[in-house]
Amino acid sequence: MRDSLAVGIATGAYGISFGAIGVATGLSVLQTCTLSVLVFTGASQFAFVGVVGAGGAPLAGAATALLLGSRNTLYGLRLTSLLNLRGARRLAGAQVVIDESTAMAVNRQDESHARLGFFTTGLAVFVLWNLATLAGALGGQALGDPRDLGFDAAVAAAFLALLWPQLTTRRSRVTALGAVGVAVLLVPVVPAGVPVLAAAGVAVVAGTLGRR
């Protein structure tokens, strides 16, 4: 229980940055907060505002967010046998299938502890993430020109910080390097938003080729 709250408070820090960055890229406070309540998966939300803020079509932002959200499907697959959720519990639980709640569920010894870890962490993160988003959005709105404050660099750094823990294997590092190259080289030739989507192809190639 205490672990869940600690995780919730830690993710609150991401929430503040998301709120501030959301309004800096031109979304309203309401739009920024709606993303946190309804989408509720951090990397996808950052991706959405990143693509839209760079001038990409909103639907290209949505497509990027969905590709990033696909990892929650894998979490769900792992959780199914652990939690054994049915009916309304499954429908409610689905919204809080995220990195943190999955991490807190997979290390428990039995089903009831796994459920407790999953739901308390999911709820703690949900509440604190949304409060932090609101605080960040209101604060960001009060600050002024986002470029003068270096918010564009902050968005890039936020992606880098999210990427960092993913780079644990050689394959993932090669994939990341390839993806940066493909996306940056495509910037001058295709509409905004497309380069990031095209980088998904690098993951497909890297995941299909080779055995290790």
Partner: peptide, 23 residues
């Protein structure tokens, strides 16, 4: 592939967000 998707997308976002100014 699904495991590598986040790394690819996030890396691409870092690159675009750092170097792109419009087209």
């Amino acid at each position: 592939v699904a495991g590598l998707l986040p790394a690819a997308m996030l890396a691409a976002l870092v690159g675009v967000q750092t170097f792109a100014d419009g087209p």
